[in-house]
Amino acid sequence: NLAEVVERVLTFLPAKALLRVACVCRLWRECVRRVLRTHR
């Protein structure tokens, strides 16, 4: 699944970079939201 791969990669990025990549597309924005939720 593409979303799972994107989420896996996003887990390695710092928070500032996550906010930046959330603007790329809807899929990435949803993935960033899930990554941020799991880090809390």
Rank of each mutant, 00 (worst) to 15 (best):
A22L: 02
E4N: 07
A17T: 09
F12A: 12
V32W: 11
L19P: 03
L27R: 15
A22P: 00
R40S: 09
A15S: 10
R20L: 14
L2P: 01
V5G: 02
R20S: 12
A3Y: 13
A15K: 12
L27N: 10
L10W: 11
V5I: 08
E30W: 14
R20T: 09
E7G: 09
A22I: 05
V9D: 00
R40V: 09
R40D: 11
L13S: 07
V24A: 05
R34A: 04
R26S: 02
E30G: 08
F12G: 15
T11R: 15
R8G: 02
V5T: 05
R40A: 11
T11S: 08
V35I: 10
R40T: 09
L36N: 03
R29G: 05
C25H: 10
R8H: 03
R34W: 09
A3I: 14
F12E: 05
V32T: 05
T11M: 13
L27H: 13
A15T: 10
R33L: 04
H39Y: 13
R20Q: 06
V32K: 09
V6Q: 01
A15V: 07
R26Q: 03
A3E: 10
L13N: 05
A3D: 04
R37L: 04
E7S: 08
R37K: 10
V21W: 12
A22S: 05
R40Y: 02
L18T: 10
V9L: 12
A22Q: 05
W28N: 00
H39D: 08
L27Q: 12
E7Y: 06
V21E: 03
L19V: 13
E30L: 09
C25G: 13
C23P: 02
W28S: 03
P14C: 08
R33S: 06
N1K: 05
F12Y: 04
A15L: 06
L19E: 14
A3K: 15
R34P: 02
A15P: 07
L18C: 09
C23R: 14
A15C: 06
L10Y: 04
R34C: 04
T38Q: 11
L36A: 08
L10H: 01
A17H: 04
V32I: 07
L2D: 00
L18R: 15
E30H: 09
L27A: 13
C25R: 14
R8W: 06
A17E: 06
T38V: 13
V35Q: 01
E30T: 09
A3T: 13
C23F: 10
P14K: 15
L2N: 00
F12R: 11
L27F: 14
F12S: 07
T11L: 08
V21I: 11
R20D: 01
P14F: 10
R8Y: 03
R26C: 00
R34H: 03
A17C: 13
E7R: 12
A15Y: 03
A22H: 03
R8V: 02
R34L: 07
L36R: 10
T38L: 14
C23H: 13
R8T: 03
R26A: 00
P14N: 15
L2Y: 01
W28Y: 04
V24S: 04
V9W: 10
R34E: 00
K16V: 02
V5D: 00
V21G: 08
E7A: 12
L2R: 04
R34N: 06
R40F: 04
W28A: 14
T38A: 12
L13K: 03
C23A: 11
